[in-house]
Design a protein around this nucleic acid. Structure first.
Lengths: 262, 262
DNA sequence: TGTTGTCCTATTGTCCGACAATCCGACCGA
DNA sequence: TCGGTCGGATTGTCGGACAATAGGACAACA
């Protein structure tokens, strides 16, 4: 499904320099299941099939494409894994769907894990993105955003001391901040980062006694800045907040070079 | 395959407030193909199966899992679409692979397109990420990085005037910059952005006469800063460079609210 | 020695057909 | 209006089949 659109055929500088005239392109022998999924994918991306539409039954698709149902099913599995179609739990027909952030993030996390990305790499990316997101949030937040942020912060403060799932609430805070920034792109990118960091951050919160307090403080400061629509302050405190993570890692005795785990 | 890891079961602030004790979890009825793919995925993520390993034949997998070959094939399609396994062109067996940047990017692009993300959204994200990447590149670049950058810039200058594929070379420049930054996470995030922007940027280069010159100038400045390991300069000029894109859009008469196309 | 033709086997791509489980909507009795 | 019953539609899974071909091994040949 995503062979073609994955990367435009690039005549990169390197390949031009290599300059060995290929004369013939490799003859294309795409298997049928790929073509089927590509065809459906195209209809989805072009909005001919829209979010929420139910797909035709497998047998009907098989008839239309003139292939066997098994072939259609293989194509559907590709689309399913890409998040373009899904089956609501306990439903029979599949419906068209826009890939959820979680799905994209999961793909990204696989890549990060398998490429031996370390904590510092992720942290560095957060240092780049999160402060600016906070700044954007400060200029664009609505009252509802503010409440969501406050609620997340409150939930973190109230979280039982011994519950290691507190990271999830921290993630909620970041998520709410992303929502307030009104930039879907950054939200998508952010989510992968928090997801990738979560397991180890959990250890930090669990290990370092003062972590909770520091996180709670930072959240309060950030929310205040966002409330006051003070972008600079929001950026500054978010920056401190994220920087604190690294300090937490030191205190927890986790090496910055620790690879992101599953 | 990525239902479970997609998002940790979060007891978010909201759901806690709802406070309706579930008492029973929904009974899990995962289809076999999902379990098979999850099993293989786990072995890949845990490095039991490593990048480059050839997978057992379908019939053998079917025997081991005690399922029908069709079921195995559906599972393989999921993994294939996730980029965790692939078949080298003209090979028979599938091999384990780490998801390439292009694959991740393509997933992200689907999401961006279907979520009606507009040019400004992507541009905003670039404004956040690219300057910092340039700054990182300035501090970490090797001689080889420098040469790759120079080559990309040179390729752009030398590109035939009437060839609309010039965007690809611009993308190469950004890619080389990412490589120089030595941060895989940012590289992954960046790629999606350039990919998403490419089609419309192509129109800008094609429409606005002075675009080529301005891009070439900016590239030269940025490279100079990176060469001198001057992070601030690199950041500044990259910032100008990206900002220029927006100006190009104005001149090309493309609305900032234009949704990213396929 | 290096290239080409031949044969065999393992494996994939695709198909046919089948059957149980179950979702869905219609119909029905109170 | 509600809850039960029923039949058709659809999915998940299976068994089996067959053509095409990748990957050798090996012989013929230049």
């Amino acid at each position: 499904m995503n062979k073609k659109p994955a990367s435009r055929p690039r005549r990169s500088a390197a390949s031009v320099a290599a300059a060995e005239a290929p004369l013939f392109d490799p003859v294309e022998r795409e298997p049928a299941y790929t073509r089927v999924s590509a065809a459906i994918e195209a209809k989805i991306l072009s909005r001919t099939l829209r979010d929420g539409d139910v797909l035709p039954a497998e047998t009907e698709l098989a008839q239309q494409f003139r292939v066997h149902r098994s072939t259609v099913r293989e194509a559907l599995r590709q689309l399913e894994s890409a998040g373009l179609v899904l089956r609501p739990p306990g439903a029979k027909r599949m419906i068209v769907s826009r890939p959820h952030a979680a799905k994209v993030s999961s793909g990204m996390r696989h890549a990060l894990v398998l490429h031996d990305v370390t904590f510092v790499d992720v942290w560095e990316a957060m240092m780049v993105i999160e402060p600016e997101v906070a700044a954007l949030a400060a200029t664009r937040r609505t009252q509802a955003d503010l409440e969501a942020l406050a609620q997340a912060a409150e939930a973190f403060r109230a979280w039982p001391k011994d519950d290691t799932q507190a990271v999830d609430v921290v993630a909620d805070f970041f998520e709410a901040m992303g929502a307030a920034s009104r930039n879907q792109v950054l939200v998508l990118a952010k989510q992968s980062l928090t997801d990738a960091l979560a397991p180890s951050l959990a250890r930090v919160i669990d290990t370092v006694p003062q972590a909770r307090q520091r996180i709670a403080d930072a959240q309060r400061r950030i929310i205040a800045a966002v409330r006051d629509k003070n972008a600079d302050e929001a950026r500054k405190w978010m920056s401190k907040h994220v920087r604190d993570f690294q300090r937490g890692y030191e205190l927890a005795g986790i090496s910055p070079e620790t690879p992101i785990s599953v």
